[in-house]
Amino acid sequence: MRAFHLLAFTALILVPLAATVFSNLFLLDIGKVRMDVLIAGNRIIAALYILAIAVMLMANDVSKGMIHIFLTPPSSRRDYLIGRFFGLLVGFVVVLLAAGIGSEVVLGLTFSEKIEVYRHGLERGDGLLLALFTFYQLISILAAVMFICAWATSLAEMFVFSAGFLLLSWLLPPVLQAMKSAEVLQHTPEWIVSLLNGVAYILPSLNGSEIGLALAHGLPISSIWPHIFEHASYALLMLGLALIALLRRDL
């Protein structure tokens, strides 16, 4: 509970404060710097929520045996999994709201700038949208973490695999992007390119921050529906796998 309060406080106060202070180091593009810091802050909060709250909770349930208290008929393993997933999502909505309000306040400060170039084309409501689109991809990450925790046997396993999954999901897309350059391709063995592409296919595409930025620059909201559908489908698939893993294991 303390970790949850701390994360909400960080999203509401510390990240917006850091964005404001950091942007003052720059002469131009104040709005863009604030946006970048908010995106980075929100991503860190999302990762911490997954590792410090979701993984710890599942580890307590599964490896310490807390699940035994809850998992007696009429509650089934499926009920438990779905309940935990939506419970964690609801908790995350609270953090998201805190981040959204904090971001909106910081971007509100940007509107008071008199020179247009400082404002960087930002509009009211962009702070909330930014938080929303940095966070919505958590649906698929959370479902994947539920799958990891459904078959892992100890806190250490759950933590290491979940952190590895998060890192891969974030680091692989920029690496693959860099590999599109002819110069890099020339010096990279073909099997590594195939391997990385193969791994990237099984990870969710974490493009929320790009969507957030694009929206802030006037992209129509209808263009993001395919991304939301993609994440929802990925989450459903992972929850299905998590259920299969949970149904087959001893508790």
Binding site: M1, N60, G65, H68, I69, T72, P73, P74
Partner: peptide, 18 residues
């Protein structure tokens, strides 16, 4: 009566600390 609840007290019960 599998649909009806049953009570289980595990050995060394692990409870939510907070």
């Amino acid at each position: 009566d599998a649909e009806i609840s049953l009570g289980y007290l595990p050995e060394n019960p692990s409870l939510p600390e907070t």
